[in-house]
Design a protein around this nucleic acid. Structure first.
Lengths: 228, 228
DNA sequence: TTCATATTTCGATGATACCCTAAATGTATT
DNA sequence: AATACATTTAGGGTATCATCGAAATATGAA
């Protein structure tokens, strides 16, 4: 007679190689059609379809149908957080090539986690905002100071627009590479969008890494007091 | 070419039924010999031995040999935290009996998570300490105020003794039942030990639940301002 | 040394579930 | 209505791995 949530049910869903590739591919928050995922995981359509059904059944993914395409994405940012957290006790990847090593460096520097920024960049930005008294921690959640509200507004982020009913405003998310916290939730997403919109960062093709542009280097120094 | 930690390797270790029972049995931080775990999981000795070897290999458990007995326990509190976090997206248990329902209530009220307090009790104590300005959050970690140091001292907890080199001092750990944070780390462990030593709580036999004693009810009201 | 206890190694068995091909279903386009 | 495309269902082959009994190893007790 067990009274605890069945963690092994979720673990089982994440354990399988092909499903792990699916989850990994969706960790940046994007939605992808079944056929695309089949191609990425190098398995047949029936196989990917069966895996996707299981992941939806287990509430790890949600499906959205557009015509004859079915797009899948992570069911919530909690799912991304659990995967990121599993990474903190997982064995690090074995580096076998120079190319892999440089990719790892990029990913450690900055990446997307669901829809917000993680890696050294995500952590540095978070800590800078606290240092500048734009954010502070309260009851395990981030809150914005009065000064912070105005500060965010200059970048087109309107704190009043946060729908805190539907989504958590801002909360710490543990990083596997930094083992420190970055901002997730509505604000985390808004900040990431802001970085992309201002051309401070761009997405890598192959993985979740983000690249800092020259414009971005300036912005970090000027607005966040971060020098690299 | 993957550059992310292999989360599915850890998931695989946690996915199997028998291994899940092992991990669950060790979630309260205790160390148990192989034969005891075999009895709990209702499998043969060779079977449990093979599972234990895999869990040690994957750094989820550590083994300590005492004579011909081999005691196993969770390798770190991070492992417990990952399992607790998996619980936040896992399907809740189906309640089939009155007895199960009452056990669930007990576990939700208060339980051990590795070596610290979780559940409603763990969260309430944490929030009370923040309310009383004994603790505050800083950079995603809890810190003790000057006032707090003296306050803890009256209960035999000497903050100076915390070996912050070897172990994280105090950090928020997400609760699957409350979906709020409680204190883990050295301080979390010290607080739990203090509660047991003062006879405020006692351990349940069958699960990780803790029971509040009459003495404990008083202590909560008097020292923490918590009334139930 | 001899016996008892705790655990692991070995080898065989069996169940689970992943994978594919072929065929069916469902949706859009012409 | 006919065709094309995306995805799912059905069914069978196969690999993996959890399981157990028997035997081996390791440690402690007599």
């Amino acid at each position: 007679m067990n009274v605890y949530p069945d963690f092994s049910y979720i673990a089982k869903l994440m354990a399988e190689q092909t499903r792990a590739i699916i989850l990994d591919s969706l960790m940046n928050g994007q939605a992808l059609p079944a056929s695309e995922l089949a191609y990425m995981a190098k398995v047949s359509h029936p196989t990917i379809s069966s895996h996707l059904a299981k992941l939806v059944e287990g509430n790890l993914l949600v499906m959205e149908q557009h015509g004859r395409h079915r797009y899948y994405r992570l069911a919530s940012k909690e799912v991304a957080e659990v995967i990121e957290k599993l990474g903190t006790i997982a064995p690090p990847v074995e580096i076998r090539s120079l190319r892999q090593s440089s990719q790892l460096k990029q990913v450690r520097f900055g990446r997307t986690c669901y829809d917000h920024l993680a890696g050294d960049l995500g952590v540095k930005v978070t800590e800078a905002l606290i240092e500048k008294e734009i954010l502070y921690l309260e009851d395990g959640l981030y809150a914005v100071t009065k000064k912070g509200k105005e500060w965010f507004f200059q970048f087109g982020i309107n704190i009043e627009e946060a729908n805190t009913k539907r989504r958590i405003f801002a909360k710490p998310c543990l990083d596997w590479s930094e083992r420190r916290y970055h901002i997730s939730g509505w604000l985390g997403s808004a900040i990431a969008t802001c970085f992309f919109d201002h051309g401070w960062i761009t997405k890598a093709d192959k993985n979740r890494a983000v690249h800092l542009t020259p414009k971005g280097i300036n912005a970090l120094k000027e607005h966040f007091g971060i020098r690299l």
